[in-house]
């Protein structure tokens, strides 16, 4: 199966030689042009997995293949054109304007000492327009609301034009309206052939967007496969260690906490 967009083979990773390994022997394949959710409770190793794919962390053993090529064989520039990241938390104390902030996403297309050109300003403006947030263009980034900030981070990743988009908890801290907008936008990207890989601790978000699901707990991948096969009451109960019910409403899987099973009455 070399058709996978992202393939992990036998990854071993620990933060330091003394620390317990986060992953001992992790193998995964993520098909191109799909949305895959990494689902699991806090501390399961979801962000660590994203950082390994990104190359920010180096595995002690195993291989990471992107489009069938070893991750380390990509130049830094080629890699940053291929893979974009929307981090979970990003703050800046400086009053960058939204347009300037999004322009930073064009850096992979600039020579090392080059300043952004007209075409880059155009690409940044296009990203703003795609997300429908052109009116934020001149606002200082530190003054944005949580939802606006998340849209701006996504716009910056769009301006980067990656084929693989990694998102760390893209909908955490968002209200329903903003959550809906982000998820629809990501759905649109997937329809355009972008491979989306995102972490979430919320099964709801995963089932809305993803067609593949990876569940993790304590640094171990429990299950991975098509959403319908993995998003089951048994797997979720094992992942979160609480009883849950999975219902199908209007063709979508909906996850509810099961309050009946340990009801004293």
């Amino acid at each position: 199966m070399s058709a996978a967009m992202i393939a992990l083979q036998g990854l071993r990773f620990a933060y330091s030689p003394e620390a317990p390994a986060v992953f001992t022997d992790l193998s995964l394949e993520i098909p191109p042009g799909t949305a895959t959710a990494i689902l699991g409770p806090n501390g399961a190793g979801k962000t660590t997995l994203l950082h390994l794919i990104l190359g920010l962390l180096k595995p002690q053993a195993g291989r990471i293949l992107l489009k069938g090529r070893e991750r380390t064989s990509y130049s830094r520039t080629a890699f940053s054109r291929l893979v974009g990241l929307v981090p979970q938390i990003e703050t800046t104390p400086f009053d960058f304007s939204v347009l300037e902030y999004i322009l930073l996403g064009r850096t992979p297309y600039l020579k090392p000492l080059e300043m952004p050109r007209q075409a880059d300003y155009q690409a940044a403006a296009n990203a703003l327009e795609t997300l429908g947030i052109t009116e934020l263009k001149d606002r200082p980034v530190p003054e944005l609301s949580g939802g606006e900030h998340q849209m701006v981070l996504l716009a910056r990743a769009l301006a980067q034009g990656p084929r693989i988009l990694l998102l760390d908890e893209p909908t955490a801290h968002l209200d329903l309206g903003n959550k809906d907008r982000i998820l629809r936008l990501l759905g649109g990207l997937v329809a355009q052939g972008v491979t989306v890989l995102f972490t979430s601790h919320d099964p709801e978000t995963a089932s809305f967007l993803a067609s593949y699901l990876i569940t993790m707990r304590a640094g171990q991948v429990l299950e991975s496969g098509p959403l319908e096969e993995v998003l089951t009451e048994e797997v979720l109960a094992e992942t979160y260690q609480v009883p849950v019910r999975v219902h199908r409403i209007d063709g979508r899987l909906v996850v509810l906490l099961d309050h009946t099973s340990d009801d004293p009455d």
Binding site: L56, T77, S80, G84, P87, E90, P108, L110, P112
Partner: peptide, 23 residues
């Protein structure tokens, strides 16, 4: 002076700077 655009990148989180091609 020559690295002043890179400087913007370097003022961001490590993971963001890294993902945008900086070391």
């Amino acid at each position: 002076y020559l690295m002043r655009w890179r400087l913007n990148l370097l003022s961001l989180n490590d993971e963001t700077a890294f993902s945008l091609g900086a070391a």
